[in-house]
Amino acid sequence: MNTVLTVDAVDRSFGDRQVLKDVSFTVSTGRLTGFVGANGAGKTTTMRIILGVLAADSGTVTWRGEPLDQEIRHRFGYMPEERGLYPKMTVLEQVVYLGRLHGLGAAEARRRTMALLERLELAERADDHVQKLSLGNQQRAQIAAALVHDPELLVLDEPFSGLDPLAVDNVVSVLRERAAGGAAVLFSSHQLDVVERLCDDLVIIADGAIRAAGDRATLRDQYTLPRYAIEVGTDAGWLRDQDGVTLIDLDGRHAVFDLDPGADDQRVLHAALDRGPVHAFGPVRPSLAEIFREVIQ
């Protein structure tokens, strides 16, 4: 993994309220990092600190080992949680303008904007004023504004809220392309199913503190319980009497159970086969939502 952004021991308070407590995590190139947490957990504050919109009270944020400055941040793309573009400028004009503020030349900014709007299926609205667009299209324009200068780090605060499922797929594929092209992507979302589908790495925050961070598969293994699901040909009620088995859910021929530490799953499988056909047997992987619930408790 190629870590580029390192958030290290960041604290931040607003008045008496400490909203970030010793926040540390990393973001790597070529990967999508999902940043999840309840409303008010500190996601937006963390992102604002990365972008330099807010200052940290203590702690550091570094890019390839260097402290962040305006020049490095110029290569970042940001989509704030609170959306907004100039209502009286066309989509094309403002994306070009924001590209130019990030150092692109006029012709280059225009070329990239058109390509990007094409990719985001927004090209035919390029000359419309933003205030005339539907919310979903405004959202795409906002994403275009964050991507136009081909940033090395993308920080997207709730990029999927307000998008219909097809638009989500479209944006997801654009973000994947960017990651494949070497960009690091950090995005927050409360839509855990989308995060689950999309992210390579995961950072979970609750009450201003990081509860879990790392590779999604590793996290999943870490939070996987010794839990199994089984589907048999006849009623599965006999599982109740097996040693080391705690039945969690029983529904006729389907059952979900936990095994005590040290108990052998193969023994349970044999016991099932002795009683008739077994159609399915395997460990239950927790969904992101379940991990999330577990982690933030």
């Binding site: 330099g52 919109v53 110029h74 940001y78 704030p80 609170e82 959306r83 907004g84 573009l85 100039y86």
Partner: peptide, 17 residues
């Protein structure tokens, strides 16, 4: 005020001094 009200100011501030 327009830039504040439309929230674009956050993008602007993150882009330029």
């Amino acid at each position: 005020t327009e830039e504040k009200q439309t929230r674009i100011v956050e993008i602007l501030v993150s882009s330029v001094p």
